[in-house]
């Protein structure tokens, strides 16, 4: 256990160091969601005039979307970097040391978590500075950070699975539009009950990412909503468990050492 933890830390540290040494990699995920937040929170402010819209601040409504976007970016970074390790043979180098498979995966996830943490704190601070009030209070803000990090872990692990499956950075990049598409066909822009196009509402309802956004959103604009949080955490844990299972199985195939 101690060895696994030490190895996990070594891999996570390397993953974080290399990310923060590439400004071109970590700056866009920090700034792009903020930019979109600034633009959309104003451009879509008119939506708050719709009967039944749950808040007067579109910024508060839209803030959780930034965490989701950040998680997807973290996933992209983790996946692309890991794919590069496979492609260049760095994974083989690691496989020749006494490293454990679990430590390798957890370490890479740790890298995604590190980026996710910086993002989550930044988005939340900017939101608060721009006047968003968290209805669930300080404890709620804390839960937002926890959930945002768990979501980053979930999508990060999914990114690792894609990397292990495709083994190339381009492969990872080409799958990304699909993950973003999931986000686009969710309740990111309007509450589900205000979506009037039926097929879109139905898709948003069966789309698990809607529940992740809604859990984060409930803490910001409502306070403590047990059902939203239950669904949000539930789907997040399912995402983590599912992608961890897939990644572990794929790692065994990719790292077939005896």
């Amino acid at each position: 256990m101690k060895t696994t933890l030490r190895q996990t830390w070594l891999i996570a540290r390397r993953s974080i160091i290399r990310t923060f040494r590439q400004p071109g990699v970590f700056i866009p995920p920090l700034t792009f969601p903020l930019m979109l937040m600034a633009v959309n929170s104003n451009g879509l402010r008119a939506a708050t005039h719709l009967p039944g819209f749950p808040t007067h601040s579109f910024l508060a409504f839209f803030l959780p979307f930034s965490f989701m976007q950040g998680a997807l970016f973290a996933s992209g970074i983790a996946g692309t970097d890991f794919a590069r390790d496979i492609d260049t043979g760095f994974l083989n180098r690691l496989a020749l040391t006494p490293i454990r498979g679990s430590a390798l995966l957890l370490g890479q996830i740790g890298g995604a978590l590190g980026i996710g943490a910086v993002q989550a704190v930044l988005y939340l601070s900017v939101g608060l500075a721009a006047g968003v009030r968290i209805h669930a209070g300080i404890a709620g803000a804390f839960v937002i950070l926890i959930l945002a990090l768990l979501i980053a872990i979930g999508f990060g692990t999914l990114g690792l699975w894609i990397a292990l499956r495709t083994g190339s950075g381009e492969g990872v990049q080409s799958q990304f539009p699909l993950l973003f598409f999931l986000l686009f066909i969710s309740s990111m822009n309007l509450p589900r009950n205000l979506i009037e196009v039926r097929w879109f509402r139905d898709i948003a309802t069966i789309n698990p990412t809607s529940y992740l956004i809604e859990a984060l959103r409930s803490l910001v604009i409502e306070g403590w909503n047990g059902q939203a949080l239950g669904l949000g955490f539930g789907f997040t844990f399912a995402l983590i468990a599912g992608s961890l299972l897939l990644a572990t199985r794929q790692l065994k195939i990719r790292m077939a050492r005896t």
Binding site: T88, G89, F90, N92, P98
Partner: peptide
Amino acid sequence: RASIGAALQETALDPF
């Protein structure tokens, strides 16, 4: 693995 060292064909080094 504990007894061997290997420099494999790909120069598997992290540029950063």
